[in-house]
Design a binder for these strands. Structure first.
Lengths: 121, 121
DNA sequence: TCCGGATATATCCATTCTTGATACATAATT
DNA sequence: AATTATGTATCAAGAATGGATATATCCGGA
């Protein structure tokens, strides 16, 4: 079980939102599901991050009332805060993916067993 | 110019040391060189990390006197602290590489455009 | 009907991490 | 003589981390 740090959390959350609007709890479940249970993003990591994304204008938000089945229309049920990727958010996701790919290839230069550094002459 | 965080720093420093013993300043230069100038690990990131690796028993250390060209043998020149990967360090490097590869493939499930999540039935 | 687990959002806070700045000293270069 | 490079190391302000806590509703089973 890998608890995601902010960098990876951002990439993964934006990726999930690229599939369509969602909300904190569902995003958390989606991350666990799509990583086959390997990734975990807890509430204390999720909500501050989501707030940050909102402040940065990468997502737009709206509240939705969650009605219980056959519930009294007057009663105020649970609330969900929906997050929708903005155009700016889409661009930022592309940048994050690009940065991630570069990091990958650079790390590979250290980790892959090619050993082509130093004077090969 | 990407300044490495602790996780990546650890992987990269252990990788550099896998090629043979080195010391802080040289490791820093090696990281810049092998990443073609993209990675930076500053002194304030390097030395605390090296100390940590030493405490964890992943590296062994020794001091060496750096003699100036044709210097008075009596004068005490600069000192270098050498770091040598221990057997435990080698194992830890292997684990870090493994963890990195797993992280890569898991992140790819979010980032690559295959979109095979959700109910495809 | 009571209770536990799931749903849903959010903050608290002690510990750890980050990183530019600072400190100190020698060596090489201009 | 001044600057840059080599070399190790700490300081401290701010940011990040993550288990615990708080609050509240929904649902199924005993």
């Amino acid at each position: 079980m890998i608890t995601l740090k902010q960098d990876h959390s951002t990439l993964v959350v934006l990726s999930v939102l690229a599939d369509g609007p969602s909300y904190g709890y569902a995003i958390s479940k989606a991350i666990a599901a799509r990583s086959e249970g390997h990734f975990k993003l807890t509430a204390s990591g999720m909500y501050p991050l989501l707030t940050k994304l909102e402040k940065q204008g990468l997502v737009t938000t709206s509240w939705e009332e969650v009605k219980a089945e056959g519930a009294d229309p007057e009663s105020s049920g649970r609330k969900r805060k929906w997050y929708d990727l903005s155009p700016k958010g889409h661009k930022q996701l592309a940048k994050h993916i690009e940065a991630h790919r570069q990091m990958q290839s650079l790390i590979d230069a250290f980790v892959s067993p090619t050993t082509t550094h130093g004077t090969t002459a």
